[in-house]
Lab assay of single mutants.
Amino acid sequence: MPSETPQAEVGPTGCPHRSGPHSAKGSLEKGSPEDKEAKEPLWIRPDAPSRCTWQLGRPASESPHHHTAPAKSPKILPDILKKIGDTPMVRINKIGKKFGLKCELLAKCEFFNAGGSVKDRISLRMIEDAERDGTLKPGDTIIEPTSGNTGIGLALAAAVRGYRCIIVMPEKMSSEKVDVLRALGAEIVRTPTNARFDSPESHVGVAWRLKNEIPNSHILDQYRNASNPLAHYDTTADEILQQCDGKLDMLVASVGTGGTITGIARKLKEKCPGCRIIGVDPEGSILAEPEELNQTEQTTYEVEGIGYDFIPTVLDRTVVDKWFKSNDEEAFTFARMLIAQEGLLCGGSAGSTVAVAVKAAQELQEGQRCVVILPDSVRNYMTKFLSDRWMLQKGFLKEEDLTEKKPWWWHLRVQELGLSAPLTVLPTITCGHTIEILREKGFDQAPVVDEAGVILGMVTLGNMLSSLLAGKVQPSDQVGKVIYKQFKQIRLTDTLGRLSHILEMDHFALVV
């Protein structure tokens, strides 16, 4: 994948999101292997301009796509893939009243899908469409860049269908997702969380590099694949309309690839034109409109599966009536509230959605109805927002919020430890010299600072030695090549209790 991002070429006709291997024109390309080798690009942008032909009021008969309808489940399912879809609609009884809503608040519980998330729908649909058009064949390999849930859905379907599955996901995604993927037989590649989507090191860039190296491999490409919004247009939206008897006044959905909100909203605009569509985008993402909503100094966020630093091709923002931004604290607070007060075992993005819903639905009156999409299960986040310690460490809970008995030293300040200034190293000294210094002084790690004293990161003896043994660096290389740029900081005025929580999850903390 090139470091400079080429513009994806656009073909003359058809839909841009065809499933299957992508040609340089962004659509299915038939021909000899030699032709494909000559024409197939190194990668295709996940934010390529959409060429979708959908228009409100256009006859369904003019759609270029294969459409399906929700099917009634048999008493005995032939395999677990038949437990994807037909998820329950559940009334939220307490939270709406707590925040003064007059309307009825309903939750579409997508964590009841077989793999635990709304992404099971698009995973199965992308595979079925690729099999139907002859792209996927027995023994082929599926590769997908994902925040985890699409990966789980694909790995689940691949396990049943017999495909090899490789999932490329950023490091910030939970260990629970990784464990589930491994249990399903998927191979996992992790990428830096802070890598831009168009960087060769991003999950998108690495996935395309693997595709170019592995024979008979395919990126189904949830960011561009029409099967993504079509899955929701054909099934999720129809289920909502049936469950609500066609009567709903507002739908609120958090947005990642945009397939969920695009597919549902398009069908609702056709069948229930008075329904307002509300999009939820986390602070630090750029999906919301108008652009002024996205202006923030924050560039990272903890909530998973929603928000991006690019506009995915499948996201149709014209069908969203209003956007709201959400933050991590309210997302996790509301997710825990949904679990504790409503018994809905949902993930953090569901918290984002409901946090926005109780604001947006203030305009609705008694007798009206708001539906929220709860995308995934708490299963993926047992060591994250479900953990009091994690919430404390991230600053989303305060010590006084917890009532468990603490040891005698818990409320003492870090400054009472009488710490001395640490050994520091410059980023320009060599790895070999740094190892000598650390061994001589008896230290395992040291902060790396520039000549102005600005902290650049941390270097550890173990990481340097393993990097040297693996051949990633040489003793003569500058130590700046092996620094940890993500590390926890703590102030002298913070409590030892807070430091204790940090050290339970990290090997060190830097006192500043």
Rank of each mutant, 00 (worst) to 15 (best):
P2F: 14
T5Q: 09
P6E: 10
P21E: 11
G26N: 10
K36G: 04
E37A: 07
E37C: 08
K39W: 13
K39I: 06
I44D: 11
P46N: 01
A48R: 11
P59E: 11
A60T: 12
P64W: 03
T68C: 12
P70Q: 11
P74Q: 09
I80R: 02
L81V: 14
L81I: 09
K83A: 10
K83R: 11
I84Y: 11
I84H: 08
G85K: 06
T87K: 00
V90A: 05
V90D: 01
N93L: 14
G96L: 05
G96M: 10
E104Q: 14
L105N: 01
E110Q: 06
N113R: 01
D120E: 09
I122S: 03
I122L: 03
L124C: 08
L124F: 10
I127T: 09
D129Y: 07
D129T: 05
D129F: 03
E131P: 04
R132E: 10
R132S: 13
R132C: 15
P138W: 12
I142A: 04
I143Q: 01
I143R: 01
P145K: 00
T146P: 05
S147I: 00
S147F: 02
S147V: 00
T150R: 00
I152K: 00
L154I: 04
L156H: 01
V160D: 02
V160I: 10
Y163M: 01
C165T: 05
C165A: 05
I166D: 04
I167F: 06
M169L: 14
E171Y: 06
E176Q: 07
K177C: 00
V180Q: 05
A183S: 14
I188E: 00
I188N: 00
E201A: 05
H203T: 08
G205M: 03
P215T: 04
P215Q: 08
H218A: 03
L220Y: 03
D221A: 04
Y223I: 02
Y223W: 01
R224Y: 02
N228M: 00
L230G: 05
H232P: 00
Y233A: 00
T236Y: 00
Q243C: 06
Q243N: 09
C244N: 00
C244Y: 01
L251T: 04
V252R: 09
A253P: 05
G256F: 00
G259N: 03
I261Y: 03
I264K: 04
R266D: 02
K267N: 11
G274I: 12
R276K: 11
